[in-house]
Amino acid sequence: MILTLSKVDKYLNNTHVLKNISFSLSKGETVGLIGPNGAGKTTLLRILATLYKPYNGTITFDDRDIFVNSTDFRNIIGYMPEESGFYNKLSALENLSFYASFFGNIAEANILNQLKEFDLNPHKKVGTFSKGMKQKLLFIKSTIHNPDILILDEPFNALDPSIRINIKNIIKNLSNANKIIIFSSHILSDLEQLCNRYIFLKKGEIVSDIRKTREDNSQEINIEELYREIMT
């Protein structure tokens, strides 16, 4: 299970947003995308979610171009956008049931369990939810179908500490289950705890790609220091 990006370029509104991006992700890798605002993190995640097409370059999953049959590829990915709404007039259960219906037979009991785990009332209208509750719902939405690849754009925004711990544990479990996880976050301590690889983006270019080795696991990498070194 390998996701490979090769020489990916992307222009948005005549701006060169991503420049010659190449890397591969293997199963079990949890990758943190790090960079300042405007570095191209969201664009890169949207390309991986097949929402955008690259201007140049190829992206393959197990040697198959993900854009040749992007609808099928979306079956195996879970995508959590940075900011996204739900159908406010529908309940949490109705919202999730709608999204889950596209991923085969996901039992309602499974959806209810997930909602319970995150302490969300399944029958309450989403319009009455706080921003943090909607963020939790968004996370459940992206993982409900047990995807092979998880793409998360700022997943810890607006979450209280206990829920952050909860989500981190789920991400760790998914990583242990050999899923490919790639996510962006401005909270460097979260990345430090979860990732075994860091990709630093600056002005649309990869400026550093660091893998945690076994030795690194025993002695923590100071990501803040690295960020300062690489970005300045």
Binding site: T71, D72, R74, I77, F86, Y87, N88, K141
Partner: peptide, 14 residues
């Protein structure tokens, strides 16, 4: 307007 479209587009549907 309600920003539900990005979730919709991320589904396995054309």
């Amino acid at each position: 307007e309600e920003r539900t479209i990005e979730n919709l587009f991320s589904l396995p549907i054309s």
